[in-house]
Simulated scan of single mutants.
Amino acid sequence: MKILAFSSLYPPFYKGGYEIAAKSFIDNLRKRGHQVTVVSSKYGVTQDNENDPDILRNLHYLNFNHLNESFYIKFPWICSILSSIRRFILTIFNVIIAGKIIRRYDPDILFLWDMREISYHTVFSKVKKKIPIVIMVEDEVFNWHTINNRFFSTFSLSKDYIRFNHIFCVSKVMKDYAILAGYDINRISVVPNGISNDWLLKKITIKKPSGRLLYVGRLSKIKGIHNIIKAFNFLHKNYESDIFLTITGSGDQEYVTYLKALITKFNLMKIVRFQEKLSYQKLKDVYTQHDLLIVSSIYREPFGLILIEAMSRGIPVIASNIGGPSEIIKDQITGLLYAPNDPKDLARKIQHLLTDHALYNRIRSNAIAEVKNHYLIENVSNQIEQTLIGLLKDGRK
């Protein structure tokens, strides 16, 4: 198959698990003999850092990068007008560029990933012939009704405007959004993100946790990191052994300032540290240097690739019982779930797992087996490949 894949960002430039998952799927499809060309934005590109002929970084990135999350909150209408005008103008350029690429490559399939920052209009306004179009939904794209769309709208996934041939959703949460948006349930399938086999810990031995906890991800209020710090305050007072927390990632600086103030308020400066965002491969070592991963989101997280990564390295996960993580974690079997936005419950679950060594090691073994059985990229890619082949066969009838 000749596949043209569109994504706002593509590694080595990425903001989260979305882009990493896209590369994993695409690499696997290429290994299976399919010709996949990626079309992405110019974000992060210089003359020296891109030499792959199968990656076209020609599109304009639409986001207002220099305005942080806090500025948007304080001045929403100003940001809305400026951002919408900018998106409208750049979308016109993207439509022209994408049209030329689609005509030149003449693909069998158009595979869309996260396109909000290059615009879905980029593709749909230029598809003249009947090319099957599929989308991988890893975020609330069907529920994307923000202030940015009120002026010069550049993004709409109304079922009356776009008719996808198939929708892949990374979780049941995302599938529910697609159904509520009016899409045909028979054209929707749940395909979780996957990781490569080399992430799996080859040998697992009995381990006594030493109290080293880890958070990995974007530093944003909806990620609930403040609840981890509050939970640490409870633990610091009541837990007899040493505990340490590493917060790895980057994000909204105003929120980071708030987190640091909270750490100072609770006198946790010696046991909580920040670490800059790391490359995907370096995270392997970071996971194995810690005892627990905390996923503290207070919103309906679509999936949570970091859970799969940690589980594959034999690191138990404690996650808030909401959204995608609650589908991945089987409570008391492959991890622990706690009540969202409840730092006291999180503290209890942390203490429980650090002190019950039998449960801790049982979860480690179960988590690795769960990843091996359900989340290896080789297995989940097969479902995508078979669906794409079926679409082409249907189109030739």
Score class of each variant (00 low, 15 high):
residue 94 N to P: 04
residue 139 D to F: 15
residue 108 D to N: 11
residue 123 V to L: 02
residue 98 A to G: 09
residue 157 L to C: 07
residue 171 S to K: 01
residue 176 D to E: 12
residue 166 H to E: 03
residue 170 V to D: 01
residue 159 K to N: 11
residue 131 I to S: 01
residue 98 A to W: 00
residue 100 K to Y: 14
residue 167 I to L: 11
residue 177 Y to I: 06
residue 160 D to I: 05
residue 136 M to Q: 10
residue 94 N to D: 02
residue 99 G to H: 04
residue 184 D to F: 14
residue 130 K to E: 15
residue 136 M to E: 07
residue 131 I to M: 03
residue 107 P to I: 07
residue 185 I to V: 13
residue 159 K to G: 05
residue 130 K to Q: 15
residue 162 I to S: 03
residue 148 N to A: 08
residue 174 M to C: 14
residue 108 D to V: 04
residue 185 I to K: 15
residue 118 I to Q: 00
residue 99 G to L: 04
residue 165 N to H: 09
residue 160 D to S: 08
residue 119 S to D: 01
residue 123 V to W: 00
residue 143 N to D: 13
residue 178 A to N: 06
residue 150 R to N: 08
residue 124 F to G: 03
residue 135 I to W: 02
residue 150 R to K: 10
residue 151 F to W: 11
residue 120 Y to T: 12
residue 111 F to I: 00
residue 146 T to K: 10
residue 142 F to P: 09
residue 102 I to V: 10
residue 128 K to Y: 02
residue 185 I to H: 12
residue 162 I to W: 01
residue 186 N to T: 04
residue 138 E to K: 12
residue 106 D to H: 12
residue 125 S to M: 13
residue 114 D to A: 14
residue 95 V to K: 10
residue 119 S to K: 00
residue 178 A to P: 05
residue 156 S to L: 07
residue 176 D to N: 11
residue 159 K to S: 10
residue 134 V to N: 02
residue 112 L to R: 01
residue 172 K to Q: 13
residue 175 K to P: 03
residue 173 V to G: 02
residue 106 D to L: 05
residue 144 W to C: 05
residue 143 N to P: 03
residue 136 M to G: 07
residue 172 K to R: 09
residue 157 L to M: 14
residue 113 W to I: 00
residue 162 I to C: 03
residue 179 I to Q: 08
residue 167 I to D: 00
residue 121 H to R: 15
residue 160 D to R: 08
residue 104 R to F: 08
residue 127 V to E: 06
residue 139 D to C: 14
residue 169 C to D: 03
residue 114 D to W: 07
residue 120 Y to W: 12
residue 110 L to C: 06
residue 138 E to T: 10
